[in-house]
Design a protein around this nucleic acid. Structure first.
Length: 298
DNA sequence: AGCCAGGCAAGTG
DNA sequence: CACTTGCATGGC
């Protein structure tokens, strides 16, 4: 077993691990103490109760937990660089928010979840997760993605426990729409299956959007079945590093209506542009993630 | 019982 | 292009 620690002194702006991994951005991490995912955030005062979180990237199990002064990890391999990448520990939060817009809603959200970071998920898992996310509560999305891993991923043993990788495109393409419906995916079952086939057959890959201009990248991703503008923005923000992307979900539509009605332009692309400008442009997606989590946990 | 959940595809006008 | 409709499932 490999293990290590990443001092919080080396993480500019710190990290709120629970908020980061339970705020509905990533469904590829699980909390080890079960299906809690109720948004409960433990305080640093009782850090002994802080749960382990785990993911299984590339067949390697990585467990991580927060202590008052460090992130502590255990893994089947050296996981340091992987954690820095997946949890975006190199993001300098104070620098990113130095020019955040002076809006009451934004100030409140930034203050409430200091240390909330964006994640950098593998593109295929992120793509499938967010196809599953439509018209579904965060807790149930975690459940659906866990079911996919358990049924179709590879089992990996670590410290006497069994973990499962997220399925590869061929593993998901090899199943059937009916089997996916039986897992509780509902009308998303054919979307997941057809998109997995597209990737498995080599017709397209979400990584193909890398390097494109933001709105071109969004259009590229909507070529997958089950991916519209909103889901595309989630993939751009939570996997591909387009920090200006702001997914316009029902919560953000409410934010526009209640706080920034002048941003309502009648179409996703135009309203998105207006809200992006309001949220400061370059890091608008970072701001959006705080606001989303703040509203959802209120 | 009815409404809602991090929407999307397919079909019209 | 804008607009409407159907769509699975589960919790409250």
């Amino acid at each position: 077993m490999h293990s290590g620690r990443i001092p919080l002194a080396d993480v500019a702006g710190g990290i709120d691990l629970a908020a980061t991994l339970e705020s509905g951005q990533s469904y590829l991490w699980r909390r080890e103490d079960g299906d809690a995912y109720a948004g409960a955030v433990t305080s640093d005062a009782d850090f002994e109760t802080h749960p382990w979180y785990y993911a299984v990237p590339d067949g390697e199990v990585v467990r991580v937990r927060k202590t008052p002064d460090a992130l502590v990890w255990e893994s089947t391999t050296d996981a340091h660089d992987r954690l820095v990448d997946r949890l975006r520990l190199d993001d300098d939060l104070p620098a990113i928010f130095a020019d955040a817009p002076a809006l009451e809603l934004v100030d409140d959200a930034l203050e409430a979840f200091e240390g909330l970071r964006l994640v950098r998920d593998p593109a295929f898992g992120c793509l499938i997760s967010f196809i599953c996310s439509t018209q579904m509560r965060v807790e149930r999305i975690h459940e659906m993605v866990s079911n996919l891993a358990r049924e179709y991923g590879d089992a990996v043993q670590f410290q006497g426990e069994t973990y499962h990788t997220f399925p590869t495109p061929p593993q998901l393409a090899a199943t059937t729409e009916g089997a996916l419906r039986d897992l509780g995916l509902g009308y998303r079952a054919p979307y997941v299956h057809r998109t997995a086939e597209m990737v498995a057959d080599g017709d397209a890959h979400p990584d193909d959007a890398r390097g494109l201009a933001y709105e071109d990248a969004r259009d590229e991703l909507t070529g997958f079945v089950g991916v519209g503008d909103k889901v595309a923005d989630c993939i751009l923000l939570f996997s591909l590093g387009y920090l200006e992307a702001i997914p316009l979900d029902t919560w953000m539509q409410t934010v526009v209506a209640d706080h920034y009605p002048e941003c309502e332009k009648g179409s996703y692309a135009e309203t998105s542009r207006a809200l992006r400008a309001t949220f400061g442009g370059e890091y608008a997606g970072y701001v959006q993630t705080y606001v989303f989590h703040h509203l959802r946990t209120a």
